[in-house]
Amino acid sequence: MPRKPQLICPAGSLPALKAAVDRGADAVYVGFKNATNARNFAGLNFTDQQLTDGIAYAHRHGREVLIAINTYAQAGRVAEWRQSVDRAAEIGADAVILADFGLLDYAFHTHPSLRRHLSVQGSATNFAAINMAHECFGVSRAVLPRVLTLPQVEYVIKNTPVEIEVFGFGSLCVMAEGRCILSSYATGQSPNTHGVCSPAGSVRWETDGAQMKTRLNDILIDQFEDGEPAGYPTLCKGRFAVEGDTYYALEEPTSLNTLSILPELLKIGVAAIKVEGRQRSPAYTAEVTGTLRAALDAAGDAHYSVKPAWQDALTKVSEGHQQTLGAYSRPWR
């Protein structure tokens, strides 16, 4: 019987953190209110006081708080990123989630007892990369980009001593995380540099009767007719013309949903399952955490099947109302 994976849930605010703990997350991941994390959105994330309160709340319930400092330290401002790592250590975070190798090096030497996870933004898709991060920085867990098939995930797990965390639910990033600068090509800001993808300041929604157009820095990303479900204004999920065909050239607005393959994820030995969505509301965190908690608790059972109520709950909060197994399933690729 494989060990049950940890359930890692997102929180962009203190109410969301409490909701995640209340509904059964084993760990909650959060970010500071600055450019050091990949969800650097206006009004989102935690002040020091909120984080202190959040960590106390989680620890009181026997859960962990992981702090994402997973953008790349920008030249000339490296101190901001280092100070964020220092603060994470001071306020008692259980681990930091890092991508920048310069910052990993700093954390390893300055705070050796603070657990280090390799962020999905670190783009480590193979065991050689992960083992290097383990050997050089004592990384104890790596979050895999959403580009590998199940057998590929299993192959990584078999060849590394590092715990492997994979995404289980949430809006789907179709590109290898950390290796995508589409956002800065259109707007000047990217996840790696500013912690934003298709930043709100560049987004305009134009409504014309029942039609809605999405523009990113004036570039038309998509238009939705009456009744068509909308997605985030991320440009990889727009509709474009390729050789005369207009379609979602890269990806539909869609969410990853692994309910149906949880037993397989358990069997191959993933250490943790992560939910995307620090930018979402406490209502989302509560719904998804509760649902995945129930599913994960049942997934070790030989008679596991996806309950319609779980599916309904996740469908409701999904981007674009479509769900996929993403790269875990070969046909998607």
């Binding site: 962009g12 605010s13 203190l14 109410p15 969301a16 959105f41 206006a42 009004g43 989102l44 909120q50 930043p199 709100a200 300041g201 987004v203 305009r204 929604w205 134009e206 409504t207 809605m212 939705f224 009744g227 068509e228 479900p229 909308a230 997605g231 607005p253 930018q279 979402r280 509301s281 406490p282 209502a283 989302y284 719904e287 409701k316 909060v317 999904s318 981007e319 674009g320 109302h321």
Partner: peptide, 30 residues
């Protein structure tokens, strides 16, 4: 319900300064 969910369903729309709207939404969430 999560406001993003209502947005995906076209039940909530935001026009004008998206960043200002997002800041307000995130404040309410927090």
């Amino acid at each position: 319900e999560d406001p993003d969910t209502l947005f995906f369903q076209r039940r909530l729309t935001i026009s004008g300064d998206t960043e200002l709207g997002l800041q307000l939404k995130n404040l309410m969430d927090a």
